[in-house]
Amino acid sequence: MTGDARPWFVNEAGGEARKHAPATLRNREPIVDILRTVLPESGTVLEVASGSGEHAAWFAAAFPELRWQPSDPDGQACASIAAWCDGLPNVLPPLMLDASASDWPVGAVDAILCINMIHISPWEATIGLMRGAGERLSTGAPLYLYGPYRRAGVETAESNEAFDRSLKSRNPAWGLRDVDDVVSVATRYGLAFETVVEMPANNLSLILRKT
């Protein structure tokens, strides 16, 4: 997805396989509040770019009736996901999945989540995410996105502008995306914008559904 190291991960004490992304502790409960209004009552949820796996473990515990399929293109991330989710009966083994790839190692699913990937990946990953979601979701099934975005007519917070500059200094292909651009690509692959929800720390939840 990115081809770069993941400096936002820090090892837990003891040097275990599990990685820790501090932002997950701040955003996981607000995200769950939104997911309660979005996710189906049963079925399989694919998480694209699961990162450390902390979200997958938290969501699986919050929604025990759903089956969770975490994924990531990074081997260390997949090891961390497996460590965090060890013992959770409704979490499948993590898949090596690159959002930008034309072939994903998973079939039809009932919902897809993608948290904090779009701004830390080349634009091709967003295109691939929409293509993959359009191919695997049935009519009405949701694609949930979370992260910092730009919105037409809404001033971008200075903290997000600074974050954007930091991202581009690490990789010119990274950076905050415009909601309108993301929705435009989604529409191309049969996904319709439903709503945007303002979240803590100047982030947004975007909810799209397969048409």
Score class of each variant (00 low, 15 high):
Asp4Gln: 09
Arg6Lys: 12
Pro7Trp: 10
Val10Lys: 12
Arg18Met: 10
Lys19Leu: 13
Ala21Gly: 07
Pro22His: 08
Ala23Cys: 11
Ala23Ile: 08
Thr24Met: 10
Leu25Cys: 00
Leu25Ile: 01
Arg26Met: 07
Asn27Tyr: 14
Arg28Glu: 12
Arg28Lys: 14
Glu29His: 11
Pro30Gly: 02
Pro30His: 02
Asp33Pro: 01
Ile34Met: 07
Thr37Leu: 14
Thr37Asn: 11
Ser42Asp: 12
Ser42Leu: 13
Ser42Gln: 14
Val45Asn: 03
Leu46Cys: 03
Ala49Asp: 07
Ser50Trp: 04
Ser50Cys: 04
Ser52Trp: 06
Gly53Leu: 05
Gly53Arg: 06
Ala56Asn: 04
Ala61Asp: 05
Ala62Ser: 15
Trp68Cys: 02
Gln69Asp: 01
Gln69Pro: 01
Ser71Thr: 04
Ser71Ile: 04
Asp74Val: 00
Ile81Gln: 08
Ala82Phe: 09
Ala82Met: 04
Ala83Cys: 10
Ala83Tyr: 05
Trp84Tyr: 00
Asp86Thr: 09
Asp86Gly: 10
Gly87Thr: 13
Pro89Cys: 08
Asn90Met: 04
Leu92Trp: 02
Leu97Pro: 00
Leu97Asp: 04
Asp98Met: 04
Ala99Gln: 01
Ala99His: 03
Asp103Tyr: 11
Pro105Ile: 04
Pro105Tyr: 06
Val109Thr: 11
Ala111Arg: 00
Ile112Thr: 10
Ile112Asp: 03
Ile112Trp: 05
His119Ile: 12
His119Pro: 13
Ile120Phe: 00
Ser121Gln: 10
Pro122Thr: 07
Met130Tyr: 03
Arg131Ala: 10
Gly134Cys: 10
Gly147Gln: 15
Pro148Tyr: 07
Tyr149Gly: 06
Arg151Gly: 12
Arg151Met: 15
Val154Cys: 04
Glu155Gln: 15
Glu155Tyr: 00
Thr156Ala: 08
Ala157Cys: 03
Phe163Met: 04
Phe163Ser: 02
Ser166Gly: 15
Leu167Phe: 06
Arg170Met: 07
Asn171Tyr: 09
Asn171Lys: 14
Asn171Leu: 05
Ala173Cys: 10
Leu176Tyr: 12
Leu176Val: 14
Asp178Ala: 14
Val182Met: 01
Val183Tyr: 13
Thr187Val: 08
Arg188Glu: 14
Arg188Ala: 08
Tyr189Ile: 03
Gly190Ala: 06
Leu191Pro: 07
Phe193Pro: 00
Thr195Asn: 13
Val196Met: 14
Val197Pro: 02
Met199Gln: 13
Pro200Phe: 15
Asn202Trp: 11
Ser205Val: 10
Leu208Ser: 13
Lys210Met: 11
Lys210Gly: 11
